[in-house]
Amino acid sequence: MIPLLALIKKDFKGYFASPLGYVAIALFLFITGFAFTANLTQVSPQHLPEASLRGMVYFMAVILLFISPFLTMRIFAEEKKSGTMELLKTAPVSDAQLVLGKYLGALLFLFVLLLSTIEFPIILMQVGDPDLGPLVLSYLGLFLVGASFIAVGIFTSSLGRSQMMAAIIAFILLLTLWFLADVGGEIGEKLSMISHLQGYTLGVFDLADTLYYFFFIFIFLFLTVRKLESERWQ
């Protein structure tokens, strides 16, 4: 438990030890802020503004998709490159603990990143009377999607020493998994990350969707642990 907490703290604080964390939050707020403003102010007969985030949850998820590889690329690649991996391996910390600690550290940052958009629902409540259910579930959905992105990113970061490669492979994997719904037919839609987000945006909680994300995260974290284990025996 103590090593786990130490890892979470170190990796979470790491985001704020460099400009990375601040830039990520600023960028996320800037882009989603535009979408939010447009959503509320563009009035036309076809589009009447409504007090909900429904129109922009997908958009926010796509922005997360583009930001998260930058948040995860260094997680293992940098430890390997700088030689600090040896420190982590000499301490009595299991690979599972290592992966989980680093994952939770990144999740904590994701939480802060999403929390930074809290003004959107607050503004909605000021100017209108939004449905709280869909709002809360939208955030839950975004968190789960973001948590899945991060799991993929942690896995690709464990593959080698290059942060650049980790980010590129993460992008390719994420885009593939995201758009599977459009090209993969019925099975593709079942597997795609995008299709499981819909329920949340509508305020419908479906256990199957939640389990999908949990399972997705578990698989990629499991692969990461296996990758680290295999390195010990090379």
Partner: peptide, 30 residues
């Protein structure tokens, strides 16, 4: 064992104290 690899396994963005506190945590020290 206390082990110092050829390149010291340090994090340049951490302070000396924070770093040692982190390593102590890895070793499970309260």
């Amino acid at each position: 064992i206390g082990y110092l690899p050829e390149t010291p396994p340090i994090y340049p963005e951490m302070t000396v104290e924070d770093y040692l506190d982190f390593v102590g945590g890895l070793w499970g020290i309260r």
